[in-house]
Nucleic acid binder design. Structure first.
Lengths: 194, 194
DNA sequence: TTGACAGCTTACCATGCGGTAAGTACATTG
DNA sequence: CAATGTACTTACCGCATGGTAAGCTGTCAA
């Protein structure tokens, strides 16, 4: 299993952007992780903004692929939605870099000239919204979006806060909380759709 | 109503930290907003990290004061919790700088040497957790934290995403969604405690 | 064998960063 | 009137940043 230099750059960049944000991460530091110079990075990606865009694109493709798989496996829309949200939660708990990266993009994309990630997020959200609507057809699009966002927020916020929460409440306490979080989240999802 | 230079610095800093994050915001830019030089700022706050800490402290004091007022006004814990969460949501929708600032702190505080904001957030969270426990005494501390965090996340995530959502779905659609968000949130809060 | 290209390197540059040092202008106080 | 302190300024520093330019090396096709 050989990973191309390009892919290694993308992986290293994802981690550093997640840790420090777009401004805080430097391309020289990313390159140093592979033992290369920043000019090697620039050779592959042109500039920092484009690198960031590619990282985001790769991430959103992974998200979309997951949802597509779930949509295939489960016929019932209510199950689909529940599984999509829970899968996304589990994924973000496992790969917290991706969770933090999306959160940062939510915060930053207005600031940066090129709004690289907007449109990928859009597709992802639209899919969830329309799934909610097919579960509960009395919900307007606007209300379905509110529901989706609350559930997404409940999960994403927690995933992103893990290091801070470990700091505040201690690892032991948080291990227990993590243990019951998913069950509680499932409850919340069902309540929101009832 | 004269605001001291110091207070003006804090206000300007809050805004810029919220916009660009700790790394992205420069003290020179903050000072320029008041027509002063960065050395004036350094005169008042010593260094960037301390300025950031003071901004966070001021913010957390506002949060604590709001909660204290609610705790006084409402005798019933269930009402207290609902009002605290909704008040926090409304506050964050009105002052989105503060919402983004807290979110950024959640993401960044592990990275920065001095973890300025940890302990303020701690008090705030503990208060909510213990309120949940007095509403539903069958919840363990760990489970109460899970519940609190889900509800907090549902609200905070939405507040923080406003500019991005406006971009994706358009201002009209989002105005409608904002209109039904709070009612939906209230439903979610009650469901989580039942 | 030559030419082109991919994948790097070193060298360099202007800009902006946080921070120090030293000084100025002005008000308050002994 | 002198001393002290506050609220600023200009001047400067060393360093890291994103990006450009030019060149080196190996591969591969004509």
């Amino acid at each position: 299993m050989t990973t191309s230099t390009r892919e290694q750059f993308l992986a290293a960049a994802e981690q550093l952007f997640a840790d420090k944000g777009f401004y805080g991460a430097s391309i020289a530091t990313i390159a140093r992780k592979l033992g290369l110079t920043k000019q090697a990075l620039l050779h592959h990606f042109g500039n920092k903004e484009k690198l960031y865009g590619e990282v985001l694109r790769a991430l959103s493709e992974r998200l979309a692929a997951n949802n597509a798989a779930i949509r295939q496996r489960y016929p019932d829309p209510a199950e689909q939605l529940e599984e999509m949200l829970l899968a996304q939660f589990r994924g973000q708990m496992k790969n917290q870099d991706s969770a933090r990266l999306i959160m940062r993009e939510l915060l930053d994309n207005e600031q940066r000239a090129d709004r690289a990630g907007n449109w990928y997020l859009k597709d992802y959200l639209e899919e969830l919204v329309s799934t909610v609507q097919s579960v509960n057809s009395s919900y307007s699009r606007a209300r379905a979006l509110a529901v989706v966002y609350q559930l997404l927020g409940a999960a994403h916020y927690f995933a992103v806060s893990q290091p801070t929460l470990d700091n505040i409440f201690g690892k032991r306490q948080m291990a227990i909380t993590r243990g019951c979080f998913e069950e509680q989240l499932r409850r919340l999802i069902r309540a929101a759709l009832a």
